[in-house]
Simulated scan of single mutants.
Amino acid sequence: MRTMWCGRASQLDALQDSSLALKIRRLAFRKIRAAGPKYASTSPPNSSCRKVGENRSARRVTLDGTRFVHHLHLHKVRIMKLRHRLFDLMGGQTVLAGAIPGRKLLSALIAATPSSEAPTPAFLDFAQIEIATASFLREAVIGFRDYARQSPRNVYPVVANLQQAVAEELDFFVRARSDVLWSCELDAGDTVVRAQLIGELDPAQRSTFDLALELGTITAPELAARFTDQRIGPTAWNNRLSALASKGLLVERKQGKSKSFSPLLEIA
């Protein structure tokens, strides 16, 4: 009887979370539409997140700790940058601990993150967060990154404004998983400063990532043709680039029958 009740309680919690997430998401879309489509930007197409952040004419809409920043680039395609303030989303808590609170934040992040036609950075702003445990980071941060990169939402999570204790805990955790995340500082005007990687790439992925930083937008066939001395075929190059995109480090775009890849941010 106890097992049956626990099972029903879990189902009820899941239904309540789903209902709340749906309501939050609908409210977010209403606020975005109400803000209007008239935005201006001098950022070039496919510009880096740093350049997008420097635009002061973009319209900002804030909803329950999430800031939606809209821009319009030269091809009239609306792109959006998201800033999720964890301090607000977690009700003013400065210590984030435990898997269950991490999963609740994950649900809130998913609900507050709409799909985008253009690649969209989603900043997880840790400002005012003093401590975050590994179990919380696993469920909230890694969970959101994996969800975003496996879903068709075209969103690339970035952790921002980490205090030293949180940065050390996250770095230790992702290194133990052989994982990597983008990290940066984000000012009040949504400008990216001091972007860097947290964690460590294996040598093959690191060399491929460095090539992307050096060359900008690249494709697997281009790398195979350019570095024939390495005897790496297009398929192997594509596997490396796709692995970096799955971690959210590179932006993946369709380019004819192939795909192009470019760094999400610029290394400081």
Rank of each mutant, 00 (worst) to 15 (best):
I110L: 13
L106Y: 02
G102W: 02
I110P: 00
G98I: 12
G92C: 10
P121C: 11
E130P: 00
A108E: 13
E130F: 06
S107N: 15
T120P: 01
E117V: 13
A111L: 06
V95R: 13
A132R: 06
I110M: 13
I131D: 04
P101D: 08
G102V: 06
G102Y: 04
S107Q: 14
G92K: 10
V95S: 11
I131H: 10
F123N: 02
P101H: 06
E117D: 12
P119D: 03
S115C: 12
P119K: 01
D125L: 04
G98N: 09
I129G: 02
L105M: 15
D125C: 05
P119Y: 01
A97T: 14
K104M: 13
K104W: 06
A108W: 02
A97V: 15
R103Y: 10
I129L: 08
E117L: 14
A122W: 00
F126T: 06
Q93D: 12
T120V: 08
S115N: 11
D125A: 05
L124W: 01
E117W: 07
T120Q: 13
L106I: 02
P121D: 09
E130W: 04
P119R: 01
A122H: 00
F126K: 05
E117Q: 12
R103H: 12
V95W: 08
S115K: 10
F123C: 04
A99M: 11
L96N: 03
E130S: 13
G102L: 07
L106T: 00
A112V: 06
S115V: 08
L96P: 01
T94P: 03
I131R: 12
I110H: 01
A127P: 00
A132H: 06
L106H: 03
T94F: 02
A118F: 07
A99D: 11
T94K: 13
L105I: 13
R103W: 07
Q93R: 15
E130D: 14
L124N: 01
T120D: 02
D125N: 10
A97D: 12
A112N: 14
A108G: 09
E130L: 14
K104Y: 06
R103L: 15
L105H: 02
I129E: 02
I100V: 14
L109N: 03
A132E: 07
S107V: 13
F126N: 05
F126G: 05
L105G: 03
R103K: 15
